[in-house]
Amino acid sequence: MPVRERRRRGPPHGRLPEGGLRALRRPAGTGDKALGLPPGHTGGEDMTPRLPRYRVAVLCGGLSPERSISLESGRNVAAALLDRGVNVEIVDVTTSFLDAPPPLDCDVAFIALHGGEGEDGTVQAVLERMGIPYTGSPPEASRIGLDKAASRRRFERAGLFVAPAVLVEDTPASPPPDCPLPAVVKPVTGGSTIGVSVVRDPAALLDAIWKALRTDRAALVERFIEGREFTVAVFEEMVFPPLLIEPAAEIFDFDCKYSDGGARFSFDHGLPPERLAALEKAAKDAYNAIGCRGLARVDFILPPEGPPCVLEINTVPGMTSHSLAPLAAARAGIPFDELCMMAVRAALERKAPLRNVS
């Protein structure tokens, strides 16, 4: 059965066909529409392998609210690896990976799961028990990175600036008295800005907390910091150019992230050298503070004065056509297919001495 692309806006519910492992090896006469790959992949037996035929399982989909974004990330990664001559299987994770991990016959797993078990260390721990190398951060770093309260503690311990915040773990009858205002209220482990609110009026604070708690076990009420929003991608020892985000809305929310025209992005932000260096150092320090590996992305608010304020870290950044880490890598001269290959190489190198992957 072909893998079909289903693009949606709003909370994701799209599903690939059931059945676990789906081969994306390109058969003769099969076009990109049937495979659900991005435009321009015409199919046919015209691919010249450019490296040993490693088998990569791209894990995507999952059960989190970010499912549709993960499916798009997975398709993009699969297409890029196919172009580099890699044998690719795309795995739509439709059940709990912990309870029923799918059979994987691969040399490496490429994790393109966003939120939930794909980012909280569950999938990573299962893959380690299975003896399968995987892309990205190890289980403990993944768990800490997804939990904004836990990662804040690591950032503070590393000397990084985070906004004052209050953690709300039970549904309150009234807002806790020590909540800062104005505030950003967010689910403590959520992604893609789902369930996030900006609150300036104290009367709106309780509704914002309830909104966050509808999607998560706890809500983080964080002081709103005025400034410009930046994101900085890091890959191992490389820090990619910081990217300025100018959303059409007050915050860089789900619609801004995944719709055309929802935000403007610029590398020409005019930061003085010392501010640019501080931002890049803070990104690397945040990456190291939780023990990341592979590709990660750190989000900041840069106030008019003072140090960068760390908002959060994403240990499995999006790989969609709207995603920011690939955009930053491209600015550094690394095209998308090479970024995917770098992730595969790094995973294999951690498992065993690498054989001529080019």
Rank of each mutant, 00 (worst) to 15 (best):
M1D: 13
R4V: 09
E5L: 11
E5F: 05
H13L: 12
E18G: 09
E18K: 00
R22V: 07
L24D: 02
A34N: 06
G40Q: 08
H41T: 10
E45I: 03
M47P: 11
R53D: 15
A57D: 13
V58D: 03
V58W: 03
V58I: 11
P65N: 09
E66V: 00
E66F: 02
I69T: 07
I69G: 01
I69R: 00
G74F: 00
A80C: 05
A80R: 01
L82P: 00
D83E: 15
I90Y: 02
T95A: 15
A100G: 12
A100K: 08
P102M: 10
C106N: 12
V108C: 13
I111S: 03
L113E: 07
G115N: 09
G116A: 11
E117L: 06
E117M: 08
G118T: 06
E119G: 01
G121M: 11
G121P: 05
T122P: 04
V123R: 02
A125G: 15
G131L: 11
I132M: 14
Y134M: 10
G136W: 03
P139Y: 09
E140C: 08
E140F: 09
S142K: 10
S142M: 11
R154W: 08
R154S: 14
E156K: 02
A158D: 14
A163R: 04
A165E: 06
A165G: 08
E169F: 02
P177T: 12
P177M: 08
P182R: 11
V184C: 04
T189G: 11
G191K: 02
S192D: 13
T193S: 15
T193Q: 07
V196K: 01
R200A: 11
A204R: 12
A204N: 13
L206E: 15
L206V: 13
E222M: 00
F224H: 10
F224K: 12
I225F: 01
I225E: 04
M238G: 07
L243F: 07
I245N: 00
D255G: 07
K257R: 14
G262Q: 12
A263W: 02
R264S: 14
F265R: 13
D268S: 12
E274R: 10
E274P: 06
R275M: 10
A278G: 09
E280S: 08
K281C: 14
A282G: 06
D285Q: 11
I290P: 03
C292N: 13
R293T: 14
R293M: 13
G294D: 13
R297D: 04
R297A: 04
R297G: 02
V298L: 05
D299W: 06
D299L: 04
F300H: 01
F300S: 00
I301C: 04
P304C: 10
P304E: 14
E305G: 03
P308Y: 01
T315Q: 11
P317T: 09
P317S: 13
T320M: 05
S321I: 08
H322M: 10
H322A: 08
S323N: 06
L324W: 02
A329Y: 01
R331S: 09
R331I: 03
G333W: 10
I334K: 05
P335W: 00
V344M: 12
L348W: 13
A352R: 14
P353Y: 04
L354M: 12
R355F: 08
